[in-house]
């Protein structure tokens, strides 16, 4: 069983993703903002982090940068956001985002990307 941290402030999206990923037998934890997410990350280990970019208080970019530079985590990060500005997306990849999925999204695609990211990480660690 793999565990996933979902960072998202929209309740509706949270619920939907939870349902989608539960079906694939993942364990989901939900954080409503970047700060909560940091607390989760300090306490427990995750196999994947899915985050929105626009979050209250500490935004997604900040979270990613803190994960990589302060906590030195190599957990794969999937950004799920409505923002489509190219600059923002490339910036995300620069600071350590592994994959980017646009909102609105296709649940099957989300599931397959999650699977791929986790498999890739498995491969790298072996």
């Amino acid at each position: 069983m793999y565990s996933i941290l979902l960072v998202e402030d929209d309740e509706f999206v949270c619920k939907a993703i939870e349902i989608i990923l539960r079906k694939q037998d993942y364990i989901i934890s939900i954080a409503k903002n970047g700060q909560d997410a940091m607390q989760y990350l300090q306490k427990s280990k995750f196999d994947l982090v899915i985050t929105d970019l626009m979050l209250p208080y500490a935004n997604g970019m900040e979270l990613v940068s803190k994960m990589r530079n302060e906590l030195h985590l190599d957990v794969p990060i999937l950004v799920l956001s409505a923002v489509t500005h190219e600059k923002t997306i490339t910036e995300g990849f620069d600071i350590g985002v592994d994959d980017y999925l646009k909102k609105p999204f296709n649940p099957s695609e989300l599931a397959s990307r999650v699977k791929r990211l986790i498999q890739q990480k498995e491969k790298n660690t072996i």
């Binding site: 509706f12 999206v13 939907a16 909102k103 609105p104 999204f105 296709n106 649940p107 099957s108 695609e109």
Partner: peptide, 8 residues
């Protein structure tokens, strides 16, 4: 409808 793409 606004939140999902694909078949949904």
């Amino acid at each position: 409808r606004q939140n999902f793409t694909g078949d949904i």
